[in-house]
């Protein structure tokens, strides 16, 4: 077959074919080898388990717990990070004074503060949300600071020449100009939040998808464990796709395509 005939066929192939093919190969390989394991399950078993979890509502409950913690954590950590980041972007003095503290505390891995947060908040959504807030605060702070620093200096100068008061310089000029980049920071932060949420649940907190994964693994139900893992992948994809769509809807025409 000539190249000109193959190219249109290849271009027409949908992206979902790749994961589907990978699953089919895994299923075939596992059946052919007759593998028996307490830690592995065939994709067909995982699919059945996933349907069961949807049917009995467990997946909805676990997802609501994880997403609840993520929402609170991002709202708290993201907002604080955004406010401080904008302030640092606008005020060189604030940036200078805060820089050492930021660079000292920022490298602390969020999971390292699990024991401390457990002592303060105990088990449950508050503890998890606090850890997520800590994890989201830093990227939001740095990215929103950079977003504000990246605003065209001429824009600020024009606003000064027009005699706009300081507050309006921020709300009318700096923030709108930095908003697309701040939104990109939010997308990045949400990804981090989901990772931290599930890690916290696996390590310590008996709620959410992470808890469901570790519990299923320890009770010798690998198919359920992988069903939750698979669901987690879908959830991450859904979150990202939703935010990309929102990014394009809000800023697409004015600021070009959102990075995927």
């Amino acid at each position: 077959m000539s190249r000109t005939r193959i190219d249109p066929v290849l271009r027409a192939l949908p992206a979902w074919l790749v994961p589907l093919a990978m699953l089919a190969v895994t299923e075939f390989a596992m059946r052919a080898s007759g593998i028996e394991s307490d830690g592995l399950a065939r994709p067909s078993e995982v699919a059945t388990a996933l349907l069961g979890l949807i049917g009995n509502g467990e997946i909805v409950l676990r997802t609501a717990e994880t997403i609840g913690a993520v929402t609170i954590g991002v709202a708290v950590g993201g907002t604080l990070g955004l406010l401080l980041g904008v302030w640092m972007g606008l005020s060189p003095t604030a940036a200078r004074l805060a820089s050492l503290t930021v660079e000292l505390v920022r490298p602390i891995p969020p999971v390292a503060i699990i024991p401390l947060m457990m002592l303060i908040y105990g088990l449950g959504i508050k503890m998890e949300a606090a850890i997520i807030a800590f994890a989201c605060f830093w990227p939001m702070l740095l990215l929103s600071r950079d977003a504000v620093l990246g605003v065209e200096p001429q824009l600020i100068e024009v606003s000064r020449m027009l005699g706009l008061p300081r507050r309006q310089q921020i709300t009318k000029i700096a923030l709108p100009a930095a908003l697309p980049r701040i939104f990109a920071a939010l997308r990045l932060t949400l990804g981090i939040a989901l990772i931290v949420a599930v890690t916290t649940e696996i390590a310590a907190n008996p709620i959410g998808i992470g808890y469901a994964i570790i519990s299923a693994g320890l009770s010798l139900r690998p198919e359920v464990m992988y069903a939750f893992l698979f669901w987690l992948a879908i959830l991450g994809w859904l979150l990202n796709t939703g935010l990309v769509a929102m990014h394009q809807h809000l800023f697409g025409a004015a600021y070009g395509e959102a990075p995927r």
């Binding site: 457990m118 002592l119 908040y121 088990l123 519990s215 320890l218």
Partner: peptide, 13 residues
């Protein structure tokens, strides 16, 4: 609660 590492802190809190 899988594992026992988080139990003491959970008791204390």
């Amino acid at each position: 609660i899988p594992g026992g590492q988080s139990m003491p802190a959970a008791l204390q809190s």
